[in-house]
Amino acid sequence: MFSGLVRGDAQIAQLDKKDQTIKLIVKCAPDFLQNVKIGDSIAINGTCLTVESFTTDSFQVTMMPQTFKKTIFKDSNVGDQLNVERSLEVGQRLEGHIVTGHIDDLATVTQKKINENAIEIWLEFPPRLQKQIVAQGSIAINGVSLTVMDTEKNQFSVGLIPHTQDETNLSKLKIGSEVNIETDILGKYVSKNLEKSN
């Protein structure tokens, strides 16, 4: 379980692809890995992955074919900046929103503009997620907890405040860039129950 409050100071140090399996070595700040153990969960660009091995400033994970198909990692390269987050501990403040690390699908950037000190981004998402994305609701983009500003058909907008621009990889997105998205877990349950009642 995660909160969507990420650190963007990690990068891909090694990337090994074999068919639809990916082994990834992530380089990060040593303090991020304090007390890490093999088997721990770490969200990388919003994707919950398991630590298989680690050093003082890096860790390795393996992605299975389902992760390959549903995330942006199939198009990643060595040196790419990553958003990373350790799993929540009981007793921590939940300052973002509840993020599971289970990616729903990809969204594509369609517009990007500066709005005073914020960056406004519009993204197109698969129509099947339409009932789960609402204005003023929560969404995780590459693992970053954000508030949906507005929606239009199968597009939604978010705003990046200066802190988010500085601390994550979202400010580097361009028109056409793909991102991992996870809709709000509460919205999923509401949507599912409404389907059953119809």
Results as ranks from 00 to 15, higher is better:
residue 82 L to W: 03
residue 136 Q to E: 13
residue 181 I to G: 08
residue 169 N to W: 07
residue 89 E to T: 13
residue 99 V to F: 04
residue 116 E to F: 14
residue 91 G to T: 05
residue 194 L to Q: 14
residue 148 V to W: 04
residue 114 I to F: 10
residue 34 Q to G: 06
residue 31 D to A: 07
residue 126 P to Q: 05
residue 113 K to W: 10
residue 91 G to R: 10
residue 87 S to K: 08
residue 192 K to T: 13
residue 104 D to G: 07
residue 57 D to V: 08
residue 175 I to N: 07
residue 13 A to E: 05
residue 150 D to P: 03
residue 136 Q to M: 11
residue 83 N to E: 08
residue 77 N to S: 14
residue 155 Q to T: 15
residue 74 K to H: 06
residue 100 T to H: 09
residue 69 K to C: 02
residue 20 Q to I: 00
residue 159 G to L: 13
residue 87 S to W: 06
residue 76 S to I: 00
residue 189 Y to Q: 12
residue 123 L to V: 11
residue 35 N to R: 08
residue 19 D to M: 09
residue 138 S to R: 01
residue 44 I to V: 09
residue 169 N to F: 05
residue 101 G to F: 04
residue 170 L to I: 06
residue 18 K to Q: 14
residue 11 Q to R: 11
residue 106 L to D: 03
residue 115 N to E: 15
residue 183 T to I: 09
residue 144 V to W: 03
residue 192 K to V: 10
residue 182 E to H: 07
residue 23 K to T: 10
residue 71 T to D: 06
residue 33 L to Q: 07
residue 196 K to C: 07
residue 1 M to I: 15
residue 159 G to C: 13
residue 27 K to P: 04
residue 154 N to I: 08
residue 166 D to R: 14
residue 108 T to C: 12
residue 120 E to I: 14
residue 50 T to L: 05
residue 9 D to N: 09
residue 136 Q to I: 04
residue 123 L to Q: 12
residue 151 T to L: 14
residue 120 E to V: 12
residue 115 N to K: 15
residue 23 K to Q: 13
residue 132 Q to M: 13
residue 127 P to H: 08
residue 128 R to H: 15
residue 3 S to V: 11
residue 122 W to F: 15
residue 182 E to M: 06
residue 1 M to Y: 14
residue 157 S to F: 12
residue 133 I to P: 02
residue 172 K to C: 10
residue 156 F to T: 10
residue 118 A to P: 07
residue 140 A to W: 00
residue 142 N to M: 06
residue 162 P to M: 05
residue 36 V to D: 06
residue 16 D to A: 07
residue 27 K to S: 11
residue 93 R to D: 12
residue 142 N to H: 05
residue 80 D to W: 03
residue 100 T to W: 03
residue 24 L to D: 02
residue 179 V to R: 00
residue 175 I to H: 04
residue 190 V to N: 07
residue 115 N to A: 13
residue 5 L to K: 05
residue 52 E to S: 06
residue 27 K to R: 09
residue 12 I to S: 02
residue 73 F to H: 02
residue 38 I to P: 11
residue 172 K to G: 04
residue 189 Y to N: 12
residue 138 S to F: 11
residue 188 K to G: 13
residue 184 D to K: 10
residue 109 V to L: 07
residue 155 Q to F: 11
residue 58 S to I: 04
residue 131 K to N: 15
residue 156 F to C: 14
residue 172 K to Y: 12
residue 44 I to K: 01
residue 47 T to V: 14
residue 156 F to Q: 11
residue 2 F to G: 01
residue 128 R to V: 04
residue 147 T to A: 10
residue 145 S to C: 10
residue 42 I to Y: 04
residue 48 C to Q: 01
